[in-house]
Write a protein that binds this DNA or RNA. Sequence first.
DNA 1: TTAAATAGATATCCTAAGTATACTAGTATC
DNA 2: GATACTAGTATACTTAGGATATCTATTTAA
Lengths: 141, 141
Amino acid sequence: MLKASNSEAEYAIYAAVKLKNCPIKVVMGVLGKKWTVLILREIALHKIGRFNQLCRSIPELTPRVLIMRLHELEKCGIIQAVIVKDKPRFVRWTITEKGHDVIPILMSIIAFGAKWYADEVFEDHRPRTINELYPELNSPR
Amino acid sequence: MLKASNSEAEYAIYAAVKLKNCPIKVVMGVLGKKWTVLILREIALHKIGRFNQLCRSIPELTPRVLIMRLHELEKCGIIQAVIVKDKPRFVRWTITEKGHDVIPILMSIIAFGAKWYADEVFEDHRPRTINELYPELNSPR
DNA sequence: TTAAATAGATATCCTAAGTATACTAGTATC
DNA sequence: GATACTAGTATACTTAGGATATCTATTTAA
């Protein structure tokens, strides 16, 4: 475990790097709204890309907010709407290259949850590491 | 870079692990509210722990919401109020061991922002890796 | 000694974000 | 012809968060 006492600011951004804005603030402007991260979980991790599938896999989320979040994520280039068929409209929401880079964020959230919320997350209540949950991350294809 | 095409679900949670709830959902219930992550950035990364210091370092955040978030984070054990002095009350909000484990989440958010939002984040607009920003992460003390 | 500034919060009001419920159009299936 | 699927919309309502002012207690400065 890391000790905080070694330095005033444990993690200090490299002094020569001039920041205009905090990256966390900027990213949270994009990912910080309610449901956004859960929608990305479905699209990026579970490969669920259809509107009604998303409605079903996140039942508390209403279609109104879902379409708002999808359009927001599309606008900022994290997902894209692939028109499978027109009339009737069939859309598949997929992740972009940029969206692919949010997966490490999702993984760090899962790691935190698997360690500290094992009671609510796992049926056997046993905390797990991210490597236990995703063994393929150790031996990449 | 990872390729998505190799498998239906690129990241599949190990089949034998029985989930009660999705860890992302559970964690977002704790960290998902507006301002929470930014407050944790200040406390965990910048070691800003005083109420009025937090007010000043996040000017758009009102005291009302700040105290709500601090109490929420305290309740779930991510931060704790260290009473520096009683009458008048002097409090230092510090991170707990559990709170320490949210730092990887913050770091993955910073990494994403430093790569994809360089324009808004850095004065020179040049994307950076997390190792460029935090060289000490490569050579831990 | 009185005012100003600091600390850590609260209270009130009001708007913006999100929720509930129902509904749309177009097509396929029973 | 009824039902159910697709991908969304519309309207009304509730709650979370923002704006602003205030609170108690203490220290500092004039």
